[in-house]
């Protein structure tokens, strides 16, 4: 794999430096390796995200206007150490509490929890909401074992909007929890990405197989199935998402009349062409079930280098989540206007 990099051990540092340059003054590089907005108002309830690097644009590309206030960035595919989490926490804190919102991976939980303890020593009020949208990683009764994948993009977007209007950490936490609860994803992988420092693949899979439910680092999912067409695969993936809403006692099943936000994510190498072909089938399937598409996101927002694969995320939208979604937002990697496609605004 040809990678346009310098010192392989400095990849994460240099990409965050580049990201700060891309923000052109809107954000700054903080401490060992964090990125934080420059204009966080006093008294704001702050939103901090973060995780391993190498999955750009998440998480650090989701810092921006009406999005996250900062991101603690780990090394490639590794959780940020506690001191980085703490440095970012101190920098985003405006005295009204900080919400940590990140994907449920053991390394991230360990390090963010330690970062929260260091922050607590400095009397910063920290709360944590974990993202666990990957329905193939564990049954609904074991959500603590579920991984966070592409669903984190709409979740962070809506939490970022909620953080603009929240008057307390309780309010922001409740909004983020609702967005997490209503967002479910299924992913497939077709070929691995590579580790930038070594060039080695992140996992192995046969040329003629697809990993159904496989995680973004090659974690096992439902199982491997023979390579197939977009129209054969899409309903299988979508059914797993819809079934999860049915099986989980904590949410209502999706029913005709529900509004959902649809997100088709590419893991990196899967093209927009393929994403659109899948989207077209998702739309047909949802329409047949009477579920209406409220808005659509499509593109490579949660990636693993040149991994090929795709995920489908659905978020059931109520009035509150719609308000958060319709707020405009802007970052180097993800921006949207006010309102929604096909809406009145």
């Amino acid at each position: 794999m040809k990678k346009l990099i310098n010192d392989p051990l400095k990849v994460a540092d240099e990409l965050v430096e580049g990201l700060v340059d891309a923000y052109n003054g809107e954000c700054k590089f903080v401490g060992s390796r964090s990125i934080v907005k420059n204009d966080i108002p006093d008294g704001k309830v702050s939103l901090l995200v973060g995780g391993g690097s190498g999955h750009e644009p998440i998480y650090h590309g989701l810092v921006g206007r009406n999005l996250a206030d900062g991101a603690a960035c780990g090394d490639i595919f590794a959780a940020p150490p506690p001191n980085i989490v703490f440095e970012a926490t101190e920098e985003v804190n405006r005295g009204n509490g900080v919400l940590y919102l990140y994907g449920n991976y053991a390394g991230d939980v360990l390090n963010f929890d330690l970062g929260a303890e260091l922050s607590d020593d400095e009397d910063i009020d920290v709360r944590t909401v974990l993202i666990w949208d990957d329905v193939c990683s564990a049954p609904p009764t074991e959500k603590d074992k579920r991984r966070g994948i592409a669903g984190l993009v709409p979740i962070v977007k809506m939490a970022g909007a909620a953080s603009q209007v929240a008057t307390s950490l309780d309010e922001l936490e409740a909004a983020a929890r609702k967005a997490v609860l209503q967002t479910r994803s299924v992913g497939v992988s077709m070929s691995p990405g590579s580790i930038p420092a070594t060039g080695k693949p992140t996992f192995e899979i046969e040329e003629d197989q697809i990993g159904l439910g496989m995680g973004i680092h090659g974690e096992p999912g439902v199982g491997e199935i023979p390579m197939t067409t977009a129209d054969e695969l899409t309903p299988k993936m979508l059914d797993l998402v819809i079934e999860d809403f049915e099986k989980d006692d904590e949410v209502e099943p999706l029913t005709p009349g529900d509004d959902v936000l649809v997100f088709i994510n590419s893991l990196g190498a899967t093209t927009m062409m393929e994403c659109l072909i899948v989207l077209r089938k998702v739309k047909a399937e949802l329409t047949a079930k009477g579920i209406s598409i409220y808005d659509v996101m499509v593109g490579p927002l949660t990636t693993c280098q040149e991994m090929s694969g795709i995920s489908i995320s659905l978020t059931r939208m109520d009035d509150e989540l719609k308000r958060y979604w319709e707020m405009p937002c802007q970052s180097v990697c993800f921006s949207k206007m006010e309102g929604r496609y096909g809406g009145q605004k």
Binding site: S32, A79, P82, G107
Partner: peptide
């Protein structure tokens, strides 16, 4: 512990640091 925790990252930095 602090040196390991802040230099290693990942799960092992957190547990050896702890």
């Amino acid at each position: 512990g602090m040196a390991m925790m802040s230099s290693m990252g990942g799960a092992s930095g957190a547990v050896f640091g702890t």
